[in-house]
Amino acid sequence: MNQRISARFDTARQSGRKLLIPFITAGDPDPAWTVPVMHALVSAGADLLELGVPFSDPMADGPVIQLASERAIEKNVTLGGVLDMVRLFRQTDSDTPVVLMGYMNPVERYGRTRFPADAADAGVDGLLLVDCPPVERDDLGSAMDEAGLDGICLVAPTTTRDRVKDIAGVARGFIYYVSLKGITGAGQLELPELSEPVKQIREFSDLPVAVGFGIKNAETAVKVAVHADAVVIGSALVEALAEAESSAQACALATAFVAPVRESLDNMG
């Protein structure tokens, strides 16, 4: 169990604070801006950071994150490079949990059993591998546990009751509920049904529940936060940051995006 993640959720639970988890693609729009943007996100009220590891074939991602990945890959951002970014971030922030989100092949190439220890050493707290269901983790699962790296699990609207139970048995840190059948950044006309699926997760697990996919702004974040412990905002933020032309501008855009969401979450009834 990772200390930074559990401490952050415990504190929030006591004070009734809803956690805000922004997602950015590491290295986009520029590798040198990522760490300053991470700090800006924290200053603006982010509680935990999700850092996307660029991959050439992101099957679960919509066009916004696909393009962000392509841009980052063009700038030679590698998994090792992402660890360097986290290491740099940790020099001045030792409290905010950082979770890497990505796909299996870069981890495989880095070394499935070597990676968790290196990641933990760099200051990473959790790992969410979109295309690696728990049943395929193999020795990666034990390596993560040994390193104190939380293996974050996804639950989807299509996940059956039996699977939720199995997933709850191996999940660490928090459970990430994918709020829609679809890819990241997909538009949706109305808020999906959250109350039943979140209740079902809580039936089998004491872990906090974060909800993501399709949350675009303060308004949707608040509606989702009624049911969840944390909300994840990804594509909308990545899209906003893509406009930046300097590190300072990227930080300003990050702040402008996150601050109102934080405020709305804090003012929930």
Partner: peptide, 22 residues
Amino acid sequence: SRGHFGEFGGSFVSETLMHALD
């Protein structure tokens, strides 16, 4: 039964697809 040919194969997909594959 889990789709492995020795060390190869398997089901490396996102959770949303797991039930559809089942």
